[in-house]
């Protein structure tokens, strides 16, 4: 078991290393950051001067090592517009994004699980078909369109909610629905198929044969077994939410890192872009680690299999 945890930790570190290397090479090799940042008609002499100033004329290996050195000190570079450290700019946007994504995550779980279970238990009925139709619609609906539909419906037509703003709890409603619907649809579908698979397993029939009630079977046997594989999907959800928050925050003018990223990409603030990418990647990698460790806690088969090293 410890061997498994150590392997997973090493893998996590290795993936982080890959992320940093990837970002470095994308930034350094696919284009010249100086000419990318400066207006097109800048004097070449000034560009050269800037390159020298930022150390871009040195060998790539040296730059790469220096890049690591700076990162480890928490130095992600400065925004060139106002010269503030990129990490600072990003950090002040993190709480808003966290608020949005965590609420959306809760929404996904609260909406997705019961729908999936309900559909599976009533499989083949009108309830099942209705839930699955909602689910297909849910993940076919691009979230930018959903956001606009919500604004049109709830703000423009019904005037129930303000279209923008982030100060009150009710400001969260539309962004969370926009961000969470696709995820909830995916979870509902996954939970349903996972439940159906488990409900067809021989041990469910064996439970029936020994007189357990259907309700007891669903809640005490089928659900725990069906929940195990959903952990993986929940891990993926973290990525879906971060990706989706970019659009959602733009639609609702939400002051989070998603909108910051778009602004930075448009303004070519590379330091900010790389900071956001790394923070995202790090949270993804740690989410995966959490998924792996969670499996160990709740699935005895993995716990023992990894203990003996197979």
């Amino acid at each position: 078991m410890t061997g498994f945890v150590i392997r997973k930790l090493l893998r996590t570190l290795f993936t982080l290393f890959l992320v940093v290397t990837f970002v470095f090479f994308v930034l350094r090799l696919t284009g010249d950051p100086v000419s990318a940042m400066m207006p097109d008609d800048t004097d070449p002499a000034i560009l050269d001067e800037l390159r020298k100033q930022w150390g871009l004329d040195r060998p790539l290996g040296v730059q790469y090592l220096e890049y690591w050195f700076n990162l480890l000190q928490g130095d992600f570079g400065n925004a060139y517009r106002d010269g503030r450290p990129a990490i600072e700019i990003v950090a002040e946007r993190v709480p808003a994004t966290l608020k949005l994504t965590l609420t959306a995550f809760a929404f996904i779980v609260i909406a997705g699980f019961p729908l999936g279970i309900f559909a599976a238990v009533n499989r083949g009925t009108a309830i099942d078909r209705a839930i699955m139709t909602i689910s297909v619609t849910g993940f076919s609906l691009p979230n930018f369109f959903l956001g606009i539909l919500l604004i049109f419906l709830l703000s423009v037509t019904l005037r129930l909610l303000p279209a923008y703003g982030s100060d009150h709890w009710y400001n969260l409603i539309m962004p969370v629905i926009t961000l969470g619907t696709a995820g909830a649809a995916v979870i509902a579908r996954f939970v349903r198929s996972s439940m159906l698979e488990v409900l067809n397993a021989p041990y469910i029939r064996a439970c029936r044969a020994r007189g357990m009630t259907e309700r007891a079977i669903i809640w005490t046997v089928a659900l725990p077994n069906a929940a195990i594989p959903t952990i993986t999907i929940m891990g993926f959800m973290v990525g879906t939410l971060i990706g989706g928050s970019i659009v959602t925050e733009t639609v609702f003018a939400w002051p989070g890192i998603g909108r910051l990223l778009i602004d930075a990409v448009t303004a070519r603030e590379l330091a900010v872009v790389q900071t956001v990418v790394m923070i995202t990647a790090a949270s993804m990698v740690f989410a995966n680690l959490a998924v792996d460790l969670l499996y160990l806690v709740i699935d005895p088969r993995r716990r023992y299999a990894s203990g003996t090293g197979e």
């Binding site: 993936t15 891990g235 971060i242 993804m284």
Partner: peptide
């Protein structure tokens, strides 16, 4: 390893970082 990494990273972030550099 690359496949696993890609599977866990939202693709839009990667696409955006490439766009940021390439314009």
């Amino acid at each position: 390893v690359l496949v696993d990494f890609q599977a866990s990273m939202p693709f839009v972030i990667i696409a955006l970082s490439v766009i940021a550099v390439m314009g």
